[in-house]
């Protein structure tokens, strides 16, 4: 594969990453924040696949499998904390849950 195709693939990954990042920053609902986090991590996974395709080596795919596993673990603990947040404080708004300052 030539250099050009990596630019396209990386461009798509960067776009997804940026969308996810914007979502994490502006969303106040923690459920959506977690979803945007997943988008960011998976965008990085896509970037690894693209890079692996350029060098036609399995390293990129191996990293992708690691990323999937870790993203699942993050989602699991994130949802667990989300449930507790809803149960204890009756809110999943990230600003309402925030008390510590300074």
């Amino acid at each position: 594969m030539n250099e050009l195709s990596m630019v396209y693939g990386m461009g798509l990954a960067a776009l997804l990453f940026l969308l996810g990042f914007i979502g994490v920053v502006i969303r106040r609902n923690t459920l959506f924040v977690l979803m945007c986090l997943e988008i960011m991590i998976n965008a990085a996974g896509l970037a690894f696949i693209v890079a692996g395709a350029r060098w036609s080596s399995p390293d990129g795919n191996t990293m992708f499998i690691l990323i999937i596993a870790v993203a699942a673990a993050e989602a699991a603990i994130g949802l667990g904390l989300l449930l507790q947040l809803q149960k204890r404080f009756r809110t999943i708004d990230i600003d309402a849950a925030s008390e510590m300052h300074g």
Binding site: M6, L37, M40, A44, A51, M63
Partner: peptide, 16 residues
């Protein structure tokens, strides 16, 4: 999690 995503994307760029 956001920091991890940055790390991964950076590594993917270096690998590319």
């Amino acid at each position: 999690g956001v920091a991890s995503a940055f790390l991964l994307f950076g590594m993917a760029l270096l690998y590319g």
